[in-house]
Design a protein around this nucleic acid. Structure first.
Lengths: 220, 220
DNA sequence: CATTCTGTTGTACATGTGTACAATAGTGTT
DNA sequence: AACACTATTGTACACATGTACAACAGAATG
């Protein structure tokens, strides 16, 4: 209405819709790191993006749409990074690839307190926003499948028989996620190197037949 | 001010402060199950308790204090339940106790989608409320210690040597938490029975020496 | 019954939320 | 230069939040 107030014509950069949308998505993720769940408020995100709050409805149909896009970008980036990691080691043996994957999972930037904060917020949202829950399931399935493929390669190279690849992959995935979760909640409990060691021992056990019962379990 | 409005003198039950406080705490947990993070609003909690919203500040110094008390009660109940479970099997061997503990962890009421919802909310809060983070660490340390004691007993009975009990406990705890987490996020991925089986295989590997490298890791 | 104490209610208020929208300002076209 | 287009801003509004507080109501005591 009253256009009396003038103040700062600062930041009046006029960007293309794509640039602005991308900037808002990045700002949303940064804002979560800074302020947790509260960082997803329209005003917090737009302030992080250096932009007026009224601009968000202009580029997204609503706040929820922005959140979904942010989650989508986050998961796609992660999946891309995983794939690049594995492809960079395409010349190695299956066992080396699997062990490398474990090692990298407990190093920066994957093992990162900021990262965990973001995940917590989106896990919470996935409890009420089905779109996010669906995205989460898709990515998780892809990761477990990748792990299972690696394990199948390891078992083949080692001439292991009667291995329940699905449960072996679910177990390793759970072990890694659980250690990642507990380290994120309390980094003082154990070191990332110790977490890596524990997971490598799972592979050891698999190779030595110590997880033998996994071979006789009937998958449902 | 205006006491014109009368409406319902319903629910005008006059309870002792202890009863009312306890009722509000229980209502808070129930409200989280129903409405997630939003269930922790003063109005939502008080409605769940069948009480006016203005009553909360009368029994608690503020909303945060109620939340902390609710979390304290939740964790204390869980720890009590774990102890009762283990003491009920005090006559069994260490291995049987450990396997029973694993089995019960993937049955009702521990493995419960409602339960997970509550945990998610409190994990989120622990990122900003240090009181909750402190409580969480204490309980987690107790649980890991209990697991470590069980594993030490198992190793002694089986005459295992050079086992890094601490890492073995952290690993099993991580494996259980990770599977619990992933099942809660997506119950369709695998069954509770399969999760139990995977964890029992960890114990198998420990007993058979398949986790051998855990014995040579130096704890930091 | 009168009095006192306090658990309980409803209202009020300052603040924060998502979003609609008119006004403004930058950009490109003719 | 005049124009159209639209990214951007500031304001407004309806609603939710936490909590303070005056008014009420039930119970115990005299």
């Amino acid at each position: 209405m009253k256009r009396l107030l003038d103040s700062n014509p600062v930041g009046g950069l006029r960007l293309t819709p794509e640039e602005r949308r991308s900037g808002l998505i990045d700002a949303a993720l940064r804002s979560i790191i800074k302020h947790g769940q509260a960082g997803l408020s329209v005003r917090a995100v737009c302030q992080e993006a250096g932009v007026s709050a009224g601009l968000l409805p202009h580029h997204f149909p609503g706040k929820d749409a922005l959140i979904v896009e942010a989650y989508r970008k986050l998961t796609e980036d992660i999946y891309t990074q995983i794939n690049e990691t594995l492809e960079a080691a395409s010349g190695s043996s299956s066992e080396d690839k699997l062990r490398l994957f474990i090692e990298l999972s407990f190093k920066q930037p994957v093992l990162n307190a900021d990262f965990f904060r973001i995940w917590l917020v989106f896990w919470n949202l996935s409890q009420q926003q089905s779109e996010i829950a669906k995205l989460r399931d898709e990515v998780n399935r892809k990761v477990v499948n990748s792990l299972q493929t690696l394990i199948e390669g390891v078992a083949q190279d080692a001439a292991l028989e009667q291995v329940n690849f699905r449960l072996a992959a679910i177990g390793l995935s759970g072990l890694m996620d659980g250690l990642w979760l507990e380290w994120s909640l309390n980094p003082a409990g154990f070191s990332p190197e110790e977490a890596t060691e524990i997971c490598q021992c799972w592979v050891d056990a698999l190779l030595s037949g110590g997880l033998g019962r996994l071979a006789t379990v009937t998958s449902s």
